[in-house]
Design a protein around this nucleic acid. Structure first.
Lengths: 119, 119
DNA sequence: GCCTTTAGTTACAACAAGGTAACCAGGAAT
DNA sequence: ATTCCTGGTTACCTTGTTGTAACTAAAGGC
């Protein structure tokens, strides 16, 4: 179990942080929740500040936690696609709340770029 | 600026994480948002898993970020009380979304202990 | 005079997270 | 035969976060 998942208080908020806490997970999830399967390489290009190692690690943890689904096609060169699981979709309100708050903090006048395209 | 506040992507979700990310901040905020001023010592007792040093540090950062207000009375022994700022109150929907999701994950049947008592 | 109380701080140590660079497989294209 | 391509992994190192123990001030009670 990852350190971040230890939750001695058994507190709901701490539990949520165990799933989406960490520097990069929320943004990774936001990139994946477009509803379309996304390839690893495309994610890496969209988020140049995350090293590929960390991206791979975060994706693996999100998969272990059941928030995303990993589709691996047995091709060469390899092709791997990610999409939100049903459980992952239940996180959308949380991510949306986080997004909206952050967007407000940047500039109250700026309209949200949040566009959930969930099938 | 704390490392966690660096946001090269200028992403709203990452920005939010800069404020409430970290292992303890959401639970600290939850304890403070009752609407009543809370003393440092009471917070420390309520959250025995957070060392007093870390609690003090998190409170200082939350204050620097303008999410909470620190009232220090010039008494001996000292008395310090914390309360949510107006900006901090805007975080309530975010914290509530996080709380609800985490509560669901624990046990869908269990009813929420979330009871916002905001003046 | 000595002990208690509160809200911290400081120095130090331990650990977790994140980053870099190098490397891999194996089919397709050149 | 060599190079390119993708989606990783591994070893190693740096950075950031958390924890522990000891200490402080200054008033009040005994």
């Amino acid at each position: 179990m990852r350190k971040v998942h230890q939750n001695p208080d058994n507190c709901a908020v701490v539990r949520t942080m165990g799933y989406i806490g960490g520097k990069w997970k929320p943004i990774v999830l936001i990139r994946i929740l477009t509803g379309v399967k996304v390839r690893f390489g495309k994610l890496a290009v969209q988020m140049p500040d995350i090293s590929r190692k960390i991206l791979a690690q975060q994706l693996r943890e999100l998969e272990e936690d059941g928030l995303i689904i990993r589709h691996s096609y047995m091709e060469k060169p390899p092709r791997v696609e990610y999409e939100l699981s049903e459980l992952g979709k239940t996180l959308i309100p949380v991510l949306k709340a986080m997004h909206d708050w952050g967007a407000q903090m940047e500039d109250p006048a700026k309209r949200s770029t949040w566009e959930p395209i969930i099938p």
